[in-house]
Amino acid sequence: MNWISNYVRPTINSLFSRREVPENLWTKCDSCGTMLFHRELADSLNVCTNCGHHMYIAPRARFDRLFDNGIYRDVPVPAALADPLQFRDQKRYPDRMRAAQRATGEAEAMLVAEGEMGRTPVVAAAQDFAFMAGSMGMHVGNALVAGAERALDRRSPLIVFTAAGGARMQEGILSLMQMPRSTVAVQMLREAGLPYIVVLTHPTTGGVTASYAMLGDIQIAEPGALICFAGPRVIEQTIREKLPEGFQSAEYLLEHGMLDRVTARKDMRDELIVITRMLMGLPPAIKGELPPPGPAPKPEATADAAPGQAPDAGAGTDAKA
């Protein structure tokens, strides 16, 4: 476009990017209170190294560790109408949006990406709880439809990491309509015979749980995640009694038959590789560290070929390393 958008803005962004310059080198575990050094925490995918508590992780940080060598490409999501109801509570909706965009550095509450995971092509979508509580508005519906369409094009599975306080009230009925819209996306995959795998993360609630988050071929949750339709406070007000310890936790839902598995974040990638490859009828993945993806070795090539080869150039300019 022009030098302002091509040069000045990225430069400014890089100066102020939170990811480049951590404001806080230490994070306190929400559960046990242990102080965790940021590098150590990033290595453990934001899981407390002391108590195993699974903390918030941003979609990009998740993708960096999900895809082979952290290489993935954003799947473009068609833009939704901004502020269709001209919604205003104590703040205007566009102001809330801008604040969320500033805080997260992302445009909206769900990111869609494609790449390879254990050499298995997949499309993945991740909801960002830091962005207006991950709330499901038109963007989330568009993202899931775009993700499903890309999965259909590539004949690959779709994996969705959910996290949301529910539907986005500021989009009124149009947010509610994302329940049927996202269901259409799931049906497209089902008809094409492509796996749709849901990973429920903390917290997944309301209209999100009551639509695409509960329609997976396989339902996996992260340990300790709160998963519900109505939240514990609403229920306590309705029935006027205290709820049992751990009610609506991932482990509680597993016991009640609502999930297939509860899997620790550190094991999630390997498990997803095993599951998607089986469902896609592919041979088992090669275990251990993957060699950097490069051109396939020719039959006569010797073992010393290209040890320091650059990552696959086909991943495009949006790729994150």
Binding site: T183, Q187, A210, S211, A213, M214, I235
Partner: peptide
Amino acid sequence: AYPGKGAEERGQAEAIARSTDACLR
């Protein structure tokens, strides 16, 4: 939908999702 303990334990969210799914299917 009823926000109750039993309703949640028996999968209120899943039941709603399946019903919307059926409407579309």
